[in-house]
Design a protein around this nucleic acid. Sequence first.
DNA 1: GGATTAATTCATCAACTGATGAATTCCAAG
DNA 2: CTTGGAATTCATCAGTTGATGAATTAATCC
Lengths: 206, 206
Amino acid sequence: MTADAPRPGRRRGTGNSRATILDSARKLFAEQGYDATSMRAIARDAGVDSALVHHYFRDKDELFVSCIELPADPESVLAAVARTVPEVRGETLLRAVLGLWESSAQPALIALLRGAVSSAPNAELLRQVLTKRIIAALLTDLAGNAADRQLRGALAASALIGLLMTRYILKLEPLVSASGEEVISLLAPTLQHYLTGNFPRSPSPA
Amino acid sequence: MTADAPRPGRRRGTGNSRATILDSARKLFAEQGYDATSMRAIARDAGVDSALVHHYFRDKDELFVSCIELPADPESVLAAVARTVPEVRGETLLRAVLGLWESSAQPALIALLRGAVSSAPNAELLRQVLTKRIIAALLTDLAGNAADRQLRGALAASALIGLLMTRYILKLEPLVSASGEEVISLLAPTLQHYLTGNFPRSPSPA
DNA sequence: GGATTAATTCATCAACTGATGAATTCCAAG
DNA sequence: CTTGGAATTCATCAGTTGATGAATTAATCC
């Protein structure tokens, strides 16, 4: 008996601990948020000593941002969105974003969203991503003065964030169980209207 | 000297410690979220020993939900919304919700929203409030079968949550600086469309 | 005025947190 | 075979957290 008392030292074959740790961290950060997730819990979930986590990632913050570095390449996806004609960009953006969120990047994205809400610096991070990347892609080649464009971008962002919150955080039915295409067909008109429709008090004098 | 060494025991006049604690708690929960706010920090902010906080509120959870119990009376506000004709309910709801969020209840509401995102049980709390109260009021006397109504309610909730997130948490311009009336005129059509408009694949066969 | 009750603080607990340094074991280069 | 580095765990630290029970002071009731 007394089969396995795990002694220290390097293991035989397995050289994937770092990746395992990252997976566990993404999962737990996504499920419970930044504060509520302890280094020890991550280590436990990864089947590893907590000191090993610190061996690969200096501290909790570094581990968190390492989780956020997306596995996929959202940059090119957004560039593709920017290249479509503005008249269908609502649907295109929705399809791209939902594609990302249904991919293996989901835990990282949920972690990003969760983090943004629970701490001010992380909120700044998300705001940057939102304005400098997503909204920027949305507004490419869009007509109108600066104020008008900024407003349209913010409204689109609000629709998008609302969807992500209800579908992935609050898990409000029937938005959770709906297929991606259903969601797209429901929300694309709204997004498109924000981008290219005309408003009650849209600041376009002259 | 050694002027003031605060000794234990009841104080002279001041009988408002409980309210002071609640104010500090609302403020800190709103600023930093549930996890990041410690009982001790609340006590310090209220100028009080941390044991006194436990004297009035059994534990941190009870304090949190006490913070959420709104100072105003949103029940009657929502009832008023439910009494309007469905055709203007989008605007009415928006006006009511924004009124609440611009009132003294704001810290409590931000705390509720922050809490929902950072922990699953608190998410359940917000989901309950959302479905049993807000969405319920929205759907009063609305035509359609159950599935259709549930979908419309969820979409309206997503638009609402998106607005609250961008305006009060992420602080995305120009939605932050816009006046309440501007926001209403921008979003009311969307909400109204979700409630009473017709959809691409609205499940109304026959 | 004596007894009861409420308000307040002190001292303290066990649990958990993130983090560090030293030890152990293995792999790979020379 | 030796030597250096990488992977891994152990033991431990100081700090914080939520919570409790006892002590102290004041207000209130009779």
